[in-house]
Simulated assay, not measured.
Amino acid sequence: MFNFLFQDRNKEIQSLAEVISLDMAKVNLSKLAIEKAMLMIAKAIAKSDILIQTDNKEKRKEEYRLNIQPNDHECGTVFWTEVVKELLTTTEVVIIPLGGKYYRASSWQTTDSVLTERTYRDITLTCAGYDYSTYKSFRSSEVIHLRYDNARIRLYLQNVVGQYDKTLEAVNTMMRLSSQPRFKLKTGDNQVFAEELDDGTKRRTTRSKYLEKIKRLLESDELLVFPESTGVTLESMQITTNVKAEELAKMALQINNEVANAFDIPEAVFNGNITEKSDATNEFITYAVSPIAEVINDTLTAYKIGINDYCKEKEKVMVWLARFKHVDVVDSAVNLDKLRGIGFNYDEIREMVGYPLLNTEFSQARALTKNYGEEDNSNAAQET
């Protein structure tokens, strides 16, 4: 998948600038593509609502902190976008609850216990661009520790770092070359070199001595006039580069597709080539976003609900990804009508499409208009 990162660089010095230019373009395009992929997944999570399925009003109040304002300085969209980006980059994120608010930890130390709870200490919190060190210790049950390991993402990021090293090595080579001017001496096939003595006479000299004399003249700080000899021409060598736009476009498409595959994003979604009949958006949610959402679901359920309420009350926390995908109410009118017919009330349907709730007796009433009872079942729902 990543063969383009490891091309042969055994080329002539004259083409070294082109190698550097191509390598730098690859690095920049890779950084852009990786950032785009992470933002696509992070924004999908941030746009979705985090719901707490419970009848406990105190727990439901936590939805405000989880969705709207986790802390005093960040909104929910910014907070969860940064959390998911860090999760994709470093494979783990620690969120510290303090005073009913949530803060992302930029660094921490933890014990290595396996059979008992671990202790988190030496924690540095980051919030709205500022850091704050806290010396308070926390147990595992008191923090929200998200972990997500994607081998393909890690491999791709490692290869990009390796590409940086190779590119910087080439840049250093170019800097050494550019710091020492290069000249090209053109002479005839049977060129005779001569030098003028102090008394005005001339004598023959070797080619190497003639070059040494020119070198001393070039290195001199004095204002000099170079005498022009018959059949001898001195020219400055320049290293030029020429990267065609078609090559960069082809390279960009190749990198975009490889990054999309690394992050499990359909290429059509990543490159913006979605057709009306395409299921690429659903595949993006299924393969790229849902695994991250499940990690958040499980971790928040363990922290907010606990094993007792999960088993007894069937309570849980979930990232409602249905809010991420745009729903056209006109195109979906028939399907929405079917939801009404099987028992969904108007408020539930309006919430699905992002409309404000009415919160009236009429909008919360349920009306079954279809009979889905079993045969010979006297308690089957009747048509209204």
Rank of each mutant, 00 (worst) to 15 (best):
M1I: 06
F4N: 01
F4I: 14
L5D: 00
L5V: 02
N10G: 03
E12I: 05
L16S: 07
E18C: 01
V19A: 08
I20T: 04
I20D: 02
D23A: 14
D23E: 13
K26P: 00
A44M: 05
I45K: 01
I45A: 01
K47P: 02
S48A: 14
T54H: 08
D55P: 00
N56H: 07
K57W: 03
K59N: 08
R60G: 11
K61G: 15
R65A: 12
L66D: 05
I68V: 15
N71H: 05
F79Q: 04
L87P: 03
V94L: 15
I95G: 06
P97T: 10
G99D: 15
G100V: 07
S113M: 08
S113I: 03
V114P: 03
R118Y: 05
Y120I: 04
D122Y: 14
L125Y: 09
A128N: 15
G129R: 10
S133G: 04
T134A: 06
S141T: 11
E142P: 08
H145K: 10
L146T: 10
R147E: 10
D149I: 05
D149V: 08
N150S: 12
Y156C: 02
Y156N: 00
Y156M: 13
Y156R: 06
Y164Q: 06
D165T: 09
E169C: 00
A170D: 12
N172G: 08
T173Y: 13
R182I: 09
L185T: 05
T187I: 15
F193A: 02
E196G: 01
T201E: 04
K209G: 01
E219F: 01
S220F: 02
E228W: 02
S229P: 02
E235W: 01
E235M: 08
S236T: 12
Q238N: 11
Q238W: 03
Q238P: 02
V243N: 09
A245S: 12
E246D: 15
E247W: 09
L248N: 11
K250H: 07
N257Y: 02
E258G: 00
F263E: 04
A268I: 05
A268Y: 04
I274M: 09
T275G: 12
A293D: 04
I296G: 03
I305A: 02
I307R: 14
I307T: 13
E313H: 13
K314T: 03
E315K: 07
E315L: 06
M318K: 15
V330M: 10
K338Q: 13
R340G: 14
Y346L: 11
D347E: 09
E348Q: 15
E351D: 13
M352Y: 10
N359F: 11
R366C: 03
G373S: 06
T384W: 08
